[in-house]
Nucleic acid binder design. Structure first.
Lengths: 120, 120
DNA sequence: CAGAATCCGAAGCGATACTG
DNA sequence: CAGTATCGCTTCGGATTCTG
């Protein structure tokens, strides 16, 4: 990241152009909630995952939360739902390009947090 | 950011080392909630801010939420509280180095979100 | 001025039973 | 198999009043 870009970011905050701040909040919402990060993590691990396999691996999650979280992640286009009309029904979830593209940003968050917990 | 670092991040996710994922969640919590980003933004704008000035500028915030958010931000060491024992009481809030250091990460979040809302 | 205390409604989340 | 529907609990946030 360039230094000037950060300065522009800070300047856009200073000059009350809160669009920058809003986009941050939107981005936070996308991966917010109790289970979304776990779901994304699981899909990264397995590449494509079925509903019940998620339910088994995400220990403690309920049908409701898994369904809702998947719907929101799909609505935000981080994951892709593929339904195969076999018998029994088979549905697979995988990351979209957008979903993959947020991983580096999550890495930055992780690095930031680790830096200030090991240093102190 | 280096490509190898991202690959290591993904690999650490794949290999079930969820410490990476947890640190992401902790980082998200630090700036989560309804008002914390607004508070940080305001402090960036004004450098040092007093309690009631925040309350005036953060339109709609209540005493409770402002107090709680400030306490949490201070506990997470993103902001610093300085009390001057004058009459009447004066308290000023400002960013710590840790608080400043998260701004580039928030910029990345902002850039990520903007990329995928203008492109589509 | 800078909060603390209390009460209340809304939202998030969980448990269970049921369905195409 | 992959969900939906319903219900209840718990947490979050808002409104108001009070205090050092």
């Amino acid at each position: 990241m360039e230094q000037t870009e950060l300065e522009e970011f800070i300047e856009s905050i200073r000059s009350s152009d809160i669009s920058g701040e809003c986009s941050v909040k939107r981005a936070l919402d996308v991966v917010g909630g109790k289970w979304k990060l776990n779901i994304l993590t699981l899909i990264v691990q397995l590449d494509t995952v079925r509903f019940n396999e998620m339910k088994r691996r995400l220990y403690g999650i309920t049908n409701t939360m898994l369904t809702n979280s998947l719907k929101e992640l799909e609505a935000d286009k981080l994951i892709k739902r593929t339904q195969y009309n076999e018998m029994p029904l088979r549905v697979e979830y995988s990351l979209t390009e957008k979903g993959k593209s947020i991983l580096p940003v999550l890495l930055e968050l992780s690095k930031w947090w680790k830096q200030y917990t090991t240093d102190i």
